[in-house]
């Protein structure tokens, strides 16, 4: 059987069909074309597929696609303001935190959600916000620096 759902992604309304067992990550990537949402572990462990769903960061690989009916989603594609990058995006580039870049969308989304909650996150809050995002390239050092830089620029 196939379902039809309507949802909002980055301010744009979509109506599309999906199989009931489809994970949200696959629906976003394969049906709606949001390829910035990265597929990786399929178990909710690496954070590459992180999106903001109704204001909260979630792993879209372990969310049922059907649960997005009526939801308001933000993906990495919806974070820059036109051509103007969000401070977190710019900071990732400036500090060298983007190596292969595959984990980057998940980090950007998790950190955007954090900085939406608080402009001056504590070290504990930063750690909590991105412990669920695995980066295999950087050893996290440059990511720490990127978060600091972005927070400074936003405050």
């Amino acid at each position: 059987m196939s379902l039809e759902i309507t949802l909002t992604v980055n301010g744009k309304t979509h109506t599309a069909a999906l199989e009931p067992s489809t994970a949200l990550v696959d629906f976003l990537r394969d049906t709606l074309g949001y390829k910035g949402v990265k597929l990786c572990c399929n178990t909710g462990e690496c954070g590459a597929c992180t999106i903001i769903m109704d204001g909260k960061p979630v792993n879209s690989c372990v969310v049922l696609g059907a649960d997005a009916a009526g939801a308001d989603l933000v993906t990495v594609e919806g974070i820059a303001d036109g051509d103007a990058l969000h401070p977190v995006q710019q900071a990732f580039i400036d500090t060298g935190a983007v190596q292969c870049g595959y984990c980057t969308p998940g980090f950007i989304v998790s950190l955007k959600a954090l900085l939406d909650r608080t402009k001056n996150p504590t070290a504990e809050e930063v750690e909590e916000a991105i412990s669920g995002n695995i980066c295999r390239c950087t050893g996290y050092t440059k990511i720490y620096e990127a978060v600091d830089l972005a927070a400074k620029q936003m405050s």
């Binding site: 390829k35 974070i79 990058l85 995006q89």
Partner: peptide, 9 residues
Amino acid sequence: GVERVVGKG
């Protein structure tokens, strides 16, 4: 870098 932070596929 820009392609990677804005999620271009």
